[in-house]
Structures are given as structure tokens and as C-alpha cells.
Write a protein that binds this DNA or RNA. Structure first.
Lengths: 141, 141
DNA sequence: CCAACTGTAACTGATATTATTACAGTAACC
DNA sequence: GGTTACTGTAATAATATCAGTTACAGTTGG
């Protein structure tokens, strides 16, 4: 899995956890344990997909623009990690003379497409709000 | 996804396709388009899990030791790619003072465990025999 | 014994991932 | 209107992961 997915989910959960729903890239970065540039890149993508609003300039930052319970991990997955299941490496070669070697890539690809859909369905069942609840539950325990 | 999974599936399908169910690491490697050492490493793992028999020495190689329809992709997945879904990179830090940062890794991990199970269930529905059928169907088309 | 294999380890090179630096653009605030 | 605190993005550097290669010991059939 793409680690940008992890950063995105963490960031959204953090925003949901903040009383005012806001944070700057620097605050998020230190919470996630990465650098602000990476956070901004991810957040920029989340903005384009309508999950957050950004305010540039002094006192700016990111703000959740949807209810935490209305955003599923599948939404996030689609936005920045769809299709990441299939390995970059590809076996066989369409030009080869062997039935197996020449058709494996296609068949393997369809298998991974199915897997991707399956994964998406699973992520559909988990919202940012639920993630936050789970975290709070863990903290109480 | 681990690309060794791809090599393993391709190799098993190739063996299933062979009339005598046999091939050497060199034959498999050229069919898969990789090098024999990598193939041997993967096959060694498949042997330890009872999917193939190997014969060392002259005229040796690998041979399917189960019916192609009795081996699912989930079996292969468990053997050499289980848990590969979760990214190596991990957000947050258990030592931090923030509820979100300190518990995110745990919660994220449980999410990926669930995803892994989901994926495994999907792979359970596909056998090596079916992969070969799909390939043959594509070849006829 | 020789030829043809597997099993592994060690090394090298290629590729992908993450962090850093740099800087232009924007908005609040004095 | 200038200064400060932000985002957006590109370019580069550092690091980690992955794949290919070489080397060699062990096994087996002829």
C-alpha cells in the first residue's frame, strides 16, 4: 500500500480530532512524523477531491470540509492509492510464443483489478469518524 | 503486492500447463522473464509449503505436487506475501503526547489486518487451474 | 567422474521512496 | 505597504528496497 494513503488518513483523523477542525502542514507533519512538504502534497490532493478546504497565507492551514462520518477510507483510497495493489513488476511477455507467458500479464492484471475492488469494498465500511472512535477507545483502555 | 507472488503464480500455472507438470528453474525463469536464482528462491518456498516437489541433480527441476484446482491464490498468498499490504512506513509515534499520534499505528495496523483477510478471501476464490483456463480462453479469443 | 540440476549467500546495479532545499504566490495583521 | 506565516510545487539529494548477477557447495543420473 501507498504510504500517502496512511498520511492522508492520519491527517484527516487529526483534523477530525481538532475542536476547530484545523491544522497547518507543519502541525500535521509533526503529528504524522514526516515533513511538511509531503503533507502539503497529500493535502493538495485531498483538497482537489473535496475532503478539505485550504486557506493560504498567515494563520492558514487545512480544514475538514465534510463530516468525519461521511468520509470513508474508500474515498481516500480512490483519491490517492487506487490500483496500487498490482506490483510494478510484470511477469511474462506478450510477444512470447508460449500461451502462458504471452497471456499471463493480462490475466494477472484482471486478478489484481478484482482484488482492488474487493479492497475498496472493505474500505467502504470504515469512516474517518470510526477511525477516531477506535483511537479514543484505545486511549481509554 | 509482492512480486514474488506473481512469480509463484506464474510458475505454478506454467507447471500446470506442462503435460508432465515439470520444468527447470531456467525454463521457468525465461518464461516468467526473470533470472533463475529468483525463481529458485520462490520455488524453494513453494516446496516448503508443499505445492511442488523438487528434484535436484541432472534432469531435475520442479513438479506440481497438488492438483491445479486444489491450489488457490490464497494458499500462495499466505505462503509468500501475507501481510504485504501494510506499508513499511508507519505514521505517528507511540511515545507522543497526542492521542491521535500515539494510537494511530495500532489502529492503522488493525485496518490493514482486516484488509489482508479480505484480500485472502478474494484469492480463495481463484485456483491455479482457473488461471490456466482463463489464459487458454484468452488465447482462443 | 561428469554434466545438469537445486539451494544459498554475497555483491552489484537499478528503481522507488522519502526528505530537503528553494522559491513563487497568497492572505492576515500591524 | 511591508512583514510574517502560511500553501503549492519543482528540483534535488539521501536512503531504502528490489532485482539481477556471480559464485559455489550439494545432489543426482548416466
Amino acid at each position: 500500500m501507498n504510504s500517502e494513503f496512511v498520511i492522508a488518513v492520519h491527517s484527516l483523523v487529526l483534523l477530525a480530532h481538532r475542536p476547530d477542525g484545523m491544522a497547518s502542514s507543519e502541525e500535521i507533519a509533526s503529528n504524522v512524523c514526516t515533513n511538511p512538504v509531503r503533507v502539503r502534497k497529500v493535502m493538495s490532493c485531498l483538497r482537489k477531491n473535496g475532503f478539505v478546504d485550504t486557506r493560504e497565507g498567515s494563520g492558514g492551514g487545512y480544514k475538514l470540509s465534510r463530516e468525519p462520518d461521511d468520509v470513508t477510507l474508500a474515498d481516500v483510497y480512490r483519491a490517492l492509492a487506487a490500483g496500487s495493489l498490482a506490483p510494478t513488476w510484470c511477469s511474462g511477455d506478450p510477444e512470447m510464443d508460449c500461451v502462458v507467458a504471452s497471456n499471463m500479464a493480462d490475466v494477472m492484471n484482471s486478478v489484481f483489478c478484482g482484488a482492488d475492488r474487493q479492497l475498496e469494498m472493505y474500505f467502504e465500511t470504515i469512516t474517518i469518524g470510526q477511525m477516531l472512535s477506535r483511537i479514543n477507545a484505545k486511549a481509554r483502555a
